[in-house]
Design a protein around this nucleic acid. Sequence first.
DNA 1: GCGCAAACTGTTTGCGTAAACATTCCGGCT
DNA 2: AGCCGGAATGTTTACGCAAACAGTTTGCGC
Lengths: 342, 342
Amino acid sequence: MTSTLGGRPARAASMLDVARLAGVSQQTVSRVSNGSDAVKPDTRERVLAAMEELGYRPNSAARALKSGRFLTLGVLMHNLKAFGSSRMLESIDFAAAQRGYSIELISIKDPSTTEITRALSRLDHEAVDGIVMRLDAEHVREQAIDFPTRIPTVIIESASYSDRVSADADQRQGARLAVEHLLGLGHPTVWHVAGPADYASAAAREDAWRAALVEAGRPVPEVVRGDWSPDSGYLAGKRLLAASEATAVFCANDQMALGLLRAFHEAGRAVPAEVSVVGFDDTPEAEYFWPPLTTVHQDFESVGANAVALLLEQIEAGPVPPGVRLTPNHLIVRKSTDAWHG
Amino acid sequence: MTSTLGGRPARAASMLDVARLAGVSQQTVSRVSNGSDAVKPDTRERVLAAMEELGYRPNSAARALKSGRFLTLGVLMHNLKAFGSSRMLESIDFAAAQRGYSIELISIKDPSTTEITRALSRLDHEAVDGIVMRLDAEHVREQAIDFPTRIPTVIIESASYSDRVSADADQRQGARLAVEHLLGLGHPTVWHVAGPADYASAAAREDAWRAALVEAGRPVPEVVRGDWSPDSGYLAGKRLLAASEATAVFCANDQMALGLLRAFHEAGRAVPAEVSVVGFDDTPEAEYFWPPLTTVHQDFESVGANAVALLLEQIEAGPVPPGVRLTPNHLIVRKSTDAWHG
DNA sequence: GCGCAAACTGTTTGCGTAAACATTCCGGCT
DNA sequence: AGCCGGAATGTTTACGCAAACAGTTTGCGC
């Protein structure tokens, strides 16, 4: 009766429809659909043909209901348009797809505890097998987050949550790379344009910067704080110009470095002849800044892949000991840094 | 027997568990859960208390199986790390969340027809009520895409697919804005650094650029083609320098403008004194380029919101006439353009 | 040819939910 | 009191799939 011709069928074909057309039982269709069990080749052929004809697609809701598995990973992120986030998201999606998992995305505007709890609870009754959350804002940690208990979770953030499973780029090592590069160039010390105080990654970079200076026995200049934006970098640049003694600046991200460069240009302070500048992230634009920016490259792909690997291990094999899986960064030397002969 | 104390329960509580605890039927729990039907206030109280105690979360797989609705939108994108994509994704996610929908993300590396068809078929049997796809690469259109038939779909792309429902920023109007701005400044004509030929948005911008020049009776210089990357902009800049007659350049995106600016810097060609440059996109960095970039701002938020609105209308109300919902762009004048006195 | 594994296929059941239908309860009316 | 009607709640059923189990066929050795 209801053939395919003359428009789309009202409802999608189910296994039963396929079974009837192929002259087998619904269960046999299920077996063919899942590839696994032994089905006689010509039966399989008939079933596949029937599937083809009816345009059969397995109903994932039913499958999930039966099996309790969704083959979906929840991803919780804030500030998606930031370079790091989208890069990370892409790599998470790719890693998940390779293992047959889909991504359910929840992005939050403002990383407050209530927002996050709301999002987590939403993911909790959404259909996901595990959650990757990238949380960076520190004030979140002051109050307890209501982590899901039934669903494995991986956090992308290294500084805190040491009692949980997490993955991140090695912020401290990266910052150290920057400082040591500048010190190695002969600069007496290194100024720092930090990210917002309530960001864990910003705090880690700042901390490592300070530690590296102290270790080398250098004076530690006062931190200039930004908010990741080019604008705040611009302001920081102006303040540094006023102080007028900086010969080397390490910016906590490339965008702030960009703003800083603009401030220096406007003031006629030559980079790198008079001041060296190092960024953090290695955005695609950094190479084309003026001058091309020396910066710390973060391997977001690897971090995302690690996070997914840790999550899938929990989902498919069971609990994993808490701890952080760190990905090392490396320094990309371009034209914004030069030797200093005090 | 199995109380909450002493660790998490093995399985999540179902409506039946709640019903037993509250001393009502499963159906009554369902009624409370869906808010709708009339339930006596104190019964409702008891049920809510039981839900609370058991940490009950509705099982979305079961709900979807029963209702045939998933409250999930599939989003298909390529090149997630591009500025426009992530911005769009964020706005789509936000618009969807406002209406109670979740986002299932599928990103593809290389927008070939087979890749896209694969992704679509995946979404087709994934649990989604509708699909938003952002497809830009033109070669995709040469072969037919196997669009889902059972699931409403909205395309973010304006130039093609006029027989489908789509939303986009008005590429042509945006390009026109750029050209007319430069012509208004007294430039005899405007050079163009175009995006890759197989991108619909690039083609539209190029087309509108040409049309605007022709309309104004100006000579149409040869197009310099890039691939969106800063690197290609840099190369384009070098080629333009060799030709050595350009006084005004319209770049098809900000990244290429960035590369172009670097090429001009290196050659000592002053911007905007000797050459004016206009970009497209208005990335957050553009304001801090050197000089700050005059550019066409794209309202990605609005495009994403439109796409979701069109999709939800189809899902909840039924078919929508094909056509494109365009969002106008506007010009942000900064320091990279100046009057020309030939 | 018989019997017995092994290979294949069919039947039953239940996952958690919500629509449809059935039942009970209760106050107000004659 | 008896009855009616609507509100409140309970019971049955089916959504599509896959596990568990049961049944049937096939091939092979004797």
